[in-house]
Amino acid sequence: MGRPVSRRHSIAEAAHGGRGLSASVMLAGDPRRRRKEARVRGFLFAAAAATVLVGVAIVLALIGEAWNFVTQVEFSKLWSLGWFPRRDFFDVRTIVLGTIIIAGIAMVVATPLGLGAAIYLSEYASPRTRRILKPIVEILAGIPSVVLGYFALTWISPNVVQRLFTANTFNMAAAGIGVGVLVTPLVAAVTEDALRAVPVSLREASYGLGARRGETVRKVVLPAAVSGIVAALILGVSRAIGETMVVAMAAGATGGSLLQLNPLEPGQTMTAAMTALAIGSDQVAGSGLAFQSLFFVGLLLFAMTLILNVIGDRFVRRVREKY
């Protein structure tokens, strides 16, 4: 991200012997202009620094209360029975496994849909088709998660899950599919970026050798874009883990939940556990273990998504650097 900046300014830098203030010193010797430059620069820097402040504030807010939780909770309560924060049972397994199950189902849905859509749009579709269909996929990306939550509860659950299996109205499978639909446009967008980053020359070389389009896609373009595709899937998982409303609305167990591994039953994820707590008792800030557990779970979630995002970002940049 940083490198192109310096490259772009290289001529200006060479001409003025530097950037920013030094450039204005050379060209704009008038002290008033110089002072203004400094003020503007200071303001802009403050704005950029504010974004760091936000990051710091998140981490501090989470760590403060999470630390109170960790120091006060009995550790055996973190590993028994289920997630019943109001009764001081904080079985982390319940919500972490629930999160993993739902994210897993989501990726089972989002991987074929997202990759398929991206590969078809980027490699097979005629420009005309692409021009029409791509914005539609983008519309899907703009649908708020509360809408997909409603859809998962009132349509996916009865028309897909309950039609195929005997399942509770509220079940993790419907929530997982709903999250998958939500993640699909993200997977498609990142994958398509990666496919488009593969130079045309590679494709042309392949065609030149007499390879058909299908062969070129499968044996040249996809292998060349593989790190971008990996990035798409990792970022998709990260998004799926952090999704709240779909799970809170469609997965059921809102207050507390036993360890539940059957996706056809109601389940609890980290995010849904947090909303359930926050809508209930913990409107009163700063009281009790249940309130603090909210921040503990938040920190856990933050750490998980951060790690995935950093890894995903690595892969994205590998694509960029390669071509």
């Binding site: 059921g252 167990a253 809102t254 207050g255």
Partner: peptide, 11 residues
């Protein structure tokens, strides 16, 4: 403790 406890009437 092992029951579905909910403040959500619909659930």
């Amino acid at each position: 403790p092992d029951y579905v406890a909910s403040a959500n009437d619909n659930v």
